[in-house]
Design a protein around this nucleic acid. Structure first.
Length: 831
RNA sequence: GCGGACGUGGCGAAAUCGGUAGACGCAGCCGACUUAAAAUCGGCUUCCCCUGGAGUGCGGGUUCGAGUCCCGCCGUCCGCACCA
């Protein structure tokens, strides 16, 4: 009896797959195509357990589909631009490019050791000119199609690091690295017109049947479509304030108009020191969730009034208010306190009228009491021509009047903003634009692409190295030839990940992709990754794909027809007696090794460096091999839920791999059948179940099925059925534990690679049992079980149930009032 | 505050349509093999007042029958957040 030794077998089979290009996808094989993709990693340095779980899931599906006769595209690459490389440059003095490429080399070697069935011939890294150059070409196409514009826009500016910060990098108003107070600064920034596609992006969600509802809902909320009326108030100073309202039906309940601090009306009054002081106060408010929660509604009465559109006599006070946002809707609102909580809080504070215009059942009084706004349905009251209508009819009626009167228009407003893609950073795709004093903004001609990042940059001083590079930005204007300067901003790295799945499908040298080839592979049938990308990455990729369709470059509307968001890998946490986080390595038998003090076991949490509860995959693979590691990733927890890492779990997986090997190492293993119908049945039921489980990505269930089959085989006496079951078992586990399967396949002398072997066929005749266990209940309580022939008629089942000793005893001779027979399942006797 | 998901043994979980709750794994216990250990194999393992009874967060309801459907609570987690 031998043991399976992953130390030698893993690398040997990995080399064979590599040498034979086993997993290279052919564009022209004529087989049905299947595109399986996991979100490509950021090359942070080393792979973590989350990667292992993510890529194992995709790998099982890819290998399974290959065995089922598909030409499978399963590629891998690197989301290689981004801040961590620049941070490393600043902290360690390394070049971001060297740091990134070194990390890629390390992580690629680590991934290879897990034996993933990846097509490495299509590997790409977004930081290389042969990727980002094509991205620049696509950007220019978008410029030409009017999908790009430049606008002055406020950004978070860190005056110490001299860089723009994303909102997440501003903590309590300070830069996350420098700790400096962040300033709002206006910069000219490039924007992509994602809002042009807002409607399509919402509608498209409806067709994505194989996306989690949760993700679709998150995207829908993010886009945030609201329908209502945009209309103008005539103001006492002669100007007009446009407001947007989703509740035009409540217009007769309006008691004030409020504008944002940045609104032109407010700005025009800023000469008054009191107004200026109030505006300043509005701006200094914090932006954290907790602050917003507790922040008081503040208003400043401008003294101006606005005429009610239906009754010019009625003049509403105009306030500047801190809760009105300049960048949503028109930056001004009408306040209807009775039917909007925020307006009610404001009105009560400033003593404004609160008039009911929607009846809440029996409440019709014009005077609205209480501190809770009524936002439900009802009939309109105190509203002239609207009285008696329901809310929806009244909305339509007001919009019609506004449009007929020319003072307003039915409109749709989105929460989604255009995508600001400018980043004042070095390690990203250079925006291919030249600024010329005479010609203005000039796109770099495509034959001058790629605009390559200079390698000789310094991070010794803060700021954007591209901007202070001695020569890089100085070029001749492509239009007039006069000296000009390059755009020194780079693209948001989300641009890089918005089309990489297209480049994987087709990568000609001279253009971003070949349309026909890309269309043959796309859309991605199964995309797998973390929920953290539910909104931004997935929305940008959907937008980018639609933009390409809009420009006539690719006839694909949705990039990913199937999406799966996997759970995290978690681990117990440990704390020392004085409250420090401890790593599992610091502990033995509940005692901190260094101090001898007892350790507290904390919650099971996501693996993170700060909590010291990470487990590095590499030593695990060293010790247990790729297959045990993969098997553990697939076992126990449903893939969408968190997977708690445990030492005993990986030990169990290791034991199972050896258990498989013991079966594979036996005698008489060959295709065939006969001698043990029960085992034949179990086998075919298992094949079918595993097919269904893998397609549904329910790996934990497939794993349980395999265990059951193993037990059944171990208990069976030798027969052709048993040999066949073991032979088939090899094929069934091959997608999950490919190394031990490949090793056994070769050891038993079967042809070729098991990776190329065909998935076993299910024999439908063997799926049905000829005997079934019937539950016998009395009043719904289980009292007995009977083993009966499968096709027994109802009357006979009923008779068998009534004849049971236990049932006879319970019924005590009284006939049941009612008998329910569910063939194949149960008999329920109602006594 | 708004939106959503989830709640089943000591733990991870399973239960396709409303039909035998707890498959499978982990941990634990007992036994076999062994000089011994490891490995392996066999058995047990929801709880209790144990010939029976209770049980899927809590309280109701529908049904012959509810983990599953309905109503009302409680709890945990996630997303968004002054969105007019």
């Amino acid at each position: 009896m031998t043991r399976f030794n992953p130390l030698t077998a893993d690398s040997a089979w990995q080399r064979v797959w590599d040498d034979r290009q086993t997993f290279a996808a052919r564009d022209d094989s004529g087989k049905p195509q299947s595109y399986v993709l996991e979100m490509f990693p950021y090359p942070s340095g080393r792979i973590h357990m989350g990667h292992v779980r993510n890529y194992t899931m995709g790998d099982v599906l890819a290998r399974f589909r290959r065995m089922r006769g598909y030409e499978v595209l399963h590629p891998m690459g690197w989301d290689a631009f981004g801040m961590p490389a620049e941070n490393a440059a600043m902290e360690k003095g390394v070049h971001p490019g060297n740091w990134t490429r070194q990390n890629i080399a390390t992580m690629k070697a680590q991934l290879k050791r897990l034996g993933f069935a990846l097509d490495w011939s299509r590997e790409l890294a977004t930081c290389e000119p042969d990727y980002y150059g094509h991205e620049q070409a696509l950007f220019l196409d978008m410029v030409a199609s009017g999908l790009v514009y430049r606008k002055e826009s406020a950004v978070n500016w860190d005056p110490v690091d001299m860089t723009v910060l994303a909102n997440e990098q501003v903590i309590d108003g300070r830069g996350w690295r420098s700790g400096a107070l962040v300033e709002k600064r206006k910069l000219n920034q490039w924007f992509l017109k994602i809002t042009d596609f807002a409607d399509e992006l919402i509608e498209g969600l409806g067709k994505l049947e194989h996306w989690p509802d949760k993700v679709k809902l998150m995207q829908e909320n993010w886009i945030g479509k609201s329908q209502g009326l945009t209309f103008g108030f005539r103001v006492s100073n002669g100007e007009t304030i446009d407001v947007f309202s989703t509740r035009p039906d409540t217009i007769f309940g309006a008691s004030f108009v409020a504008v944002a601090a940045d609104h032109p009306i407010a700005q025009a009054l800023a000469g008054d020191p009191a107004v200026a002081a109030f505006i300043a106060r509005c701006k200094q408010g914090g932006t954290t969730a907790a602050e917003l929660e507790t922040q008081e509604k503040l208003g400043f009465d401008t003294g101006l009034t606005a005429a009610h559109p239906f009754d010019a006599e009625r003049q509403l006070p105009v306030y500047i208010a801190n809760f009105v946002l300049m960048d949503y809707g028109t930056g001004a609102v009408m306040g209807v306190p009775a039917h909007d909580q925020r307006d009610l809080d404001f009105a009560r504070k400033y003593g404004l009228a609160v008039q009911r215009v929607v009846s809440d059942g029996d409440q019709t009084d014009a005077v609205f009491a209480g501190d809770e706004a009524y936002t439900g349905p009802g009939a309109l009251v105190n509203s002239h021509f609207l009285d008696g209508m329901d809310v929806e009819d009244a909305k339509r009626a007001v919009i019609t009047r506004a449009e007929d009167g020319g003072w307003g228009k039915g409109s749709t407003v989105y929460r989604l903003r255009d995508w600001g893609v400018s980043r004042q950073r070095y390690w990203g795709t250079p925006i291919p634009i030249v600024h010329c004093e005479d010609c203005g903004v000039v796109p770099v001609p495509k034959d001058q692409l790629p605009v390559v990042l200079p390698e000789d940059v310094s991070f010794a001083i803060p700021g954007n190295p591209l901007d202070r590079h001695p020569t890089w930005k100085h070029v001749d204007c492509p239009a007039c030839g006069k000296p000009a300067v390059r755009e020194t901003d780079t693209l948001d790295t989300f641009a890089d990940s918005s089309w990489y799945f297209i480049r994987f499908a087709s990568q000609p040298k001279d253009r971003p992709f070949d349309r026909a080839v890309a269309e043959s592979w796309l859309p991605v049938g199964q995309y797998i990754g973390g929920v953290e990308h539910a909104i931004l990455h997935l929305l940008y990729a959907r937008f980018w794909t639609r933009a390409l369709k809009h420009m006539g470059q690719l006839d694909i509307a949705e990039p990913f027809t199937g999406l799966f968001t996997q759970g995290m890998v978690t681990h117990e946490t440990y704390k020392s007696s004085d409250g420090r986080w401890l790593s599992p390595d610091d502990i033995s038998d509940g005692i901190e090794t260094a101090t001898g003090q007892p350790v507290t076991i904390g919650r099971v949490e996501k693996m993170s460096k700060s909590k010291k509860n990470t487990v590095d995959p590499e030593p695990i693979v060293d010790r247990y091999g790729a297959d045990a590691t993969r098997w553990f990733m697939l076992s126990d927890s449903p893939p969408e839920r968190d997977l708690p890492w445990s030492e005993s779990g990986i030990e169990g997986a290791w034991r199972f791999v050896q258990r498989l090997w013991r079966l594979f190492d036996g005698e008489g293993i060959a295709p065939g059948e006969g001698g043990d119908v029960a085992l034949d049945r179990k086998l075919h039921q298992t094949i079918l179940a595993i097919e269904q489980d893998i397609e549904a990505l329910a790996f934990n269930k497939a794993v349980a099925r395999i265990y059951e089959l193993c037990t059944a085989i171990e208990r069976a006496v030798p027969s052709p059925s048993r040999g066949n079951a073991i032979y088939t078992l090899m094929l069934l586990v091959a997608p999950m534990v490919p190394h031990v399967a490949e090793e056994a396949w070769a050891a038993k002398g079967f042809d070729g690679l098991i990776a190329d072997a065909a998935w076993p066929e299910v024999d439908p005749a063997l799926l049905v049992e000829d005997e079934v266990t019937i539950a016998v209940q009395v009043n719904g309580k289980l009292r007995d079980t009977l083993t009966l022939p499968k096709d027994m008629p109802r009357e006979e089942i009923e008779a068998a149930a009534l004849a049971s000793d236990k049932i006879v005893r319970i019924l005590e001779g009284r006939p049941p009032k009612k008998v329910i027979v569910v063939p194949g399942r149960l008999v329920n006797l109602v006594a």
